[in-house]
């Protein structure tokens, strides 16, 4: 994953628990670089080790951390200068979600090693949609829930997300029902 993701993990920990705790997490995860470079790709394993170490040190289950990270990601990227790009990606919550694939496609030009997930959004009614989530990375469903809820906050909405179909062993698709509350 790109350094921007690891920096967001760092920001989440530091803003809630301080530098000292982050240094311990970094040390336990074996992150040797003094700082992450946003545009530099890092092995996925490093990010997973950071999350694992954070889970142990903060005594928080990994799914809870991933959920928190998903929400934080929206706040963090907006703060890091991507707010206008987010604003330009949709004028409503569902429009944004529907445009996510297009946004990721365009981002792949700037981030050539990006391996983004794919989202297919079918709106059921004004407040409900069925979202198919495809990713080569397993276990990140709680993060998707956090991302959707963090995105909802950008639009001043409270979002409920329910996993209605979990991926199987040969399938890489999870299906969520997304509702504006």
């Amino acid at each position: 994953m790109y350094g921007l993701v690891n920096k967001a993990v760092e920001d989440l920990v530091v803003s809630n628990h301080g530098e000292e705790v982050w240094d311990r997490i970094r040390g336990q995860a074996g992150a040797t670089d003094a700082a992450f470079i946003s545009m530099d790709p890092y092995p996925d394993e490093l990010t997973f080790r950071l999350v694992g170490a954070a889970s142990e040190i903060l005594e928080t289950p990994v799914p809870d951390l991933l959920h928190a990270f998903g929400r934080h990601w929206m706040l963090y990227t907006a703060r890091e200068g991507y707010a206008d790009l987010l604003d330009a990606s949709g004028s409503s919550f569902f429009e944004f979600v529907a445009n996510l694939d297009g946004l990721h496609t365009r981002l792949s030009l700037a981030f050539p090693e990006l391996r983004p997930p794919s989202f297919v959004c079918q709106q059921v009614d004004d407040r409900t949609a069925r979202l198919e989530y495809f990713s080569e990375r397993a276990g990140l469903q709680p993060m998707v829930v956090g991302l959707l809820q963090g995105l909802g906050e950008r639009f001043g909405l409270r979002i409920e997300v329910e996993l209605v179909e979990a991926r199987g062993e040969t399938d890489d698709c999870d299906v969520f029902e997304v509702r504006i509350v």
Binding site: S38, E80, L85, A88, A110, F111
Partner: peptide
């Protein structure tokens, strides 16, 4: 054009770093 805007944003991120 949107790709260019993203590239510019990425450049700014690198500069910030």
């Amino acid at each position: 054009v949107p790709d260019l805007l993203i590239a510019n944003r990425v450049r700014d991120t690198s500069l910030s770093d």
